[in-house]
């Protein structure tokens, strides 16, 4: 991500007409960024951009519908904004989009695998392709490519797709066009029993905190979610594999043709459950059946929110 000063200047320029601008600031240690809600010119000084800025800030937009909001987005985040606009979950007149170009953001789980505990990190610097992590008097030099978010590995949208103001120059960088993430083919190479055992194991860890749901920009039922309601009573409050699994199935079904693979569900999960596997598989299904990708064009309609008498790729007549 480039253009911090340009971005700050732009925010100073537009802030008087807005209630707030959502960006990122440094969090409680050298490793964590945290969302920043800019209301005053002084707040702008705290703004940071870079590989720690993992949060998809579009998630906050539906909750701020009555406000005039500026939002800073990476390419992947901008797809969530498009999807929200498409479904009229936000009003474009109330949103000013500040688009960035992005070289990838960090995956702290992967970093943890490399260096063990992340509990005492003092500082993190990115120097070209190297990530320098300082813990006390220790230094860890790690190739940034090895600790990027999965979504960054084969990102084809490094530039914001929708914006009112673009910061910096769009990059012309597309890696592995159309490539599916390795995790999906690895997983599918396993037998049915292995796959089932895998999910049973993963779901037994779920604490049903619903961070996956609340971090998802497209999960807008939040306060009225079927996970807690008694009417309908599809799920009990019991925390066990069956209920946890059922919730994840409902979640992923509800995202069919809407999920932009921003990866916030998996990033937010405190138990590190690989939820993106489910999303990737569902999205592949959507691509194959409907030739559709979510979050590309605000004029599109998610395939399950519309109806066609005859779908191109479903030959019902032959059934």
């Amino acid at each position: 991500m480039k253009g911090l000063e340009e971005l700050k200047d732009k925010i100073h320029e537009i802030l008087p007409d807005l209630d707030l601008v959502i960006g990122w600031e440094q969090g409680y240690d050298g490793l964590h960024a945290t969302p920043l809600f800019i209301k005053t010119p002084e707040d702008v000084d705290r703004l940071i951009i870079g590989p720690l800025c993992v949060h998809n800030l579009a998630t906050y937009l539906p909750g701020l519908k009555d406000k005039k909001v500026g939002v800073i987005v990476k390419g992947c985040d901008s797809r969530a904004v498009i999807e929200l606009l498409q479904e009229k979950l936000i009003n474009k007149d109330n949103v000013v989009i500040l688009g960035l170009t992005c070289d990838g953001v960090i995956n702290l789980t992967k970093l943890g695998r490399k260096i063990g505990s992340l509990g005492a990190v003092d500082d993190v610097k990115v120097e070209g392709e190297k990530l320098n992590v300082v813990i006390g008097d220790q230094q860890h030099n790690i190739a940034f490519s090895e600790v990027k978010q999965d979504k960054c590995e084969n990102c084809i949208y490094p530039n914001a797709l929708v914006f009112d103001h673009f910061i910096g120059e769009p990059v012309d960088r597309v890696e592995n066009v159309g490539a599916e993430h390795q995790s999906l083919s690895d997983f599918e190479g396993k037998s049915f029993d292995q796959r089932f055992a895998f999910w049973k194991h993963e779901m037994s860890r779920c604490i049903r905190c619903h961070a996956c749901r609340n971090a998802c920009p497209m999960c807008v039922c939040r306060d009225h979610c079927v996970a807690m309601t008694r009417n309908p009573h599809w799920l009990s409050q019991e925390n066990n594999v069956a209920e946890n699994w059922m919730f994840q199935m409902i979640h992923v079904m509800h995202l069919t043709g809407r999920c932009v693979e921003c990866g916030e569900c998996e990033r937010a999960c405190p138990m590190d459950i690989p939820l993106m596997l489910l999303r990737r598989q569902m999205n592949r299904g959507v691509r194959e059946v409907f030739d559709y990708e979510a979050g590309i064009d605000a004029q599109n309609r998610p395939p399950l929110l519309t109806f066609k008498v005859e779908e191109d790729n479903i030959s019902e007549r032959e059934w």
Partner: peptide, 15 residues
Amino acid sequence: EMSAKCISCGTCTYL
């Protein structure tokens, strides 16, 4: 202001 960035999930309470 304090709760602006909170996503109101249950991670904090459940852990």
